[in-house]
Design a protein around this nucleic acid. Sequence first.
DNA 1: CTAGGGGAAGATAACGTTATCTCGCAGCGC
DNA 2: GCGCTGCGAGATAACGTTATCTTCCCCTAG
Lengths: 330, 330
Amino acid sequence: MRARRPTIVDVAREAGVSVATVSRLINGDEKVNADYTKRIRAAIDLLGYQPDERARQLRRGRTQTLGATVRSIAEPHPVLRAVDGEARALGLSMIVMSTGDDPEREREAVMAMCRRRVDGILIEPVAESLAYLQPEIDLGLVVVAFDRPAGDVALDTVLSDNRGGIRQAFDHLTALGHRRIAYIGDDERIYTGHERAEAVRGHLRDLGESVDGMVHAGPVHTETVAAALDVLHRLPVPPTALITGNAATTLEAVRCLGTAFGSTTLVGFDDFALVDLLPAAFTVIAQDEARISETILELFRDRLARPTAPVRTVVVPTALIVRGRQEALT
Amino acid sequence: MRARRPTIVDVAREAGVSVATVSRLINGDEKVNADYTKRIRAAIDLLGYQPDERARQLRRGRTQTLGATVRSIAEPHPVLRAVDGEARALGLSMIVMSTGDDPEREREAVMAMCRRRVDGILIEPVAESLAYLQPEIDLGLVVVAFDRPAGDVALDTVLSDNRGGIRQAFDHLTALGHRRIAYIGDDERIYTGHERAEAVRGHLRDLGESVDGMVHAGPVHTETVAAALDVLHRLPVPPTALITGNAATTLEAVRCLGTAFGSTTLVGFDDFALVDLLPAAFTVIAQDEARISETILELFRDRLARPTAPVRTVVVPTALIVRGRQEALT
DNA sequence: CTAGGGGAAGATAACGTTATCTCGCAGCGC
DNA sequence: GCGCTGCGAGATAACGTTATCTTCCCCTAG
């Protein structure tokens, strides 16, 4: 027969004190007599008592827990890592759930967190509408969006400067003499995909270049990227440089270009660990993950402290990391 | 002034029924009158009621939650992804915490999960001793270890066949005529690092080859791997093939070999997504992540069903994925 | 016409904590 | 001697659920 799990009542009985005294000791109240302290500690060890966090949180109200939803729990997520560390430093537990970029799963994950009464949620929004969160926010839930804006509900938000990143890439490439600059990237229904593609179109127009066939946005697969490259290759005036819209696209492009890769002028959005292992070096637009994470937690804390303050959107600059030989176009 | 969060009592009052009836409806009890059902649903929507999971779990006992500790929450983790999906299908929530390969953090994470009364914990053990878990296990906590065995406490465990994987690599390489096969891998204080290095030593002895200077195990950094490669290069009879002990080592080796990489016969432990983008293809020993995940959940379910059954250790075979040109040694 | 059965809804006691209130006692000033 | 203050400890009412026990009512069999 399995033993019942010991509760604070068992500890109190064992130590011969009241439950209130045990509770006080557990919660670091200084005013517990030394003799009692010793007896209670002994009882806790003897019984193997572990306070029940559920009951605690229920009674106290706050859960000291931060929820986060991300695309995939299994893929590298620099922002999440930094936030995880900082949250622990703040005495917050984190619970992370994955959305698989599916709005329905996102909603389920978020509501599950609400039912657990997390103090706050960091969300990388997938769904068009987050209106279902409004009642929770009104009841005091703190929500910070990152990477993508929330759309139809007013949230503190941290974004990368997507358009600025594209501008940096254009400045770099035009300085080398490029004018025909093509783009392949993520679906424009995704915010970052739209911003980056749109920025490219704007810069091409500014240069007086035709946009036709130069900007390819859609789901990222080997086939779609190969098809886009094929279109670019057949243009009457083919591009001399290529910008890829995110890490996945960059990798697919490298894969499709094969041996042609080394001789292509490429700038990729997003830096990643293995760039230097690829057969040739290239320049990237890097997001400032450290600063993004810090800002997320800063907005979270500020909101907790002043729930009625106006919402803020912080845009974090990107940095161009120049790699490889920089040959001017002849 | 912020509104108080609505409770089941508020819903009952609003709908003009008892709390018990509301509770029954929420929990899918069929026997609630259609009229009441409608009124309760309306009240729930009106008030924006969300049941408090903490109170629920407290009352019910079970939390329907599975905890998992992994090295890093921010790095790719195929096992975790699969488990995440399967757990959701079983109606379990997951809460994931990172250990950073630090025994102290591991213990904190595990105990935090215990205090939340998770039904089970999947653990990739870091610490030498997990004895502190024994009381929890006696009280009904289900714990499944994966990737590494638990050492001093009897746990259901899922491991990859590390020694078998090395054997596959040796069979492959010796068939091509190699006999001087070197190894660089992770620290031997880590279980997988030890198993793999030890297996290499065994096979070298079986071949009648000297082991001296051929097996390098230690923390994986660019410098350590470079130093190991340097030692190998200077041996009186240098190796003709190299086995790398995990993905990180493989990448560092590729990095250090630089242009020499394409002409080196390499077999890497662990397959990973970007292998085909590296300047040259090579053979890998792949772990069967799908089967590992399935097994983890199978052991978890079995243990939940039969708490007193003897513990099991399941070893999952690896598969050799042959890539690149297979030139016989002349 | 009544007893008894069954089914649906209400009342209420847990679940394991902590915050608040109360109590007893010692110390102290007048 | 008396009341006041302060301090440490005990008793207890929440927190928001659900499981169990009642109650009530209607239907049917005898």
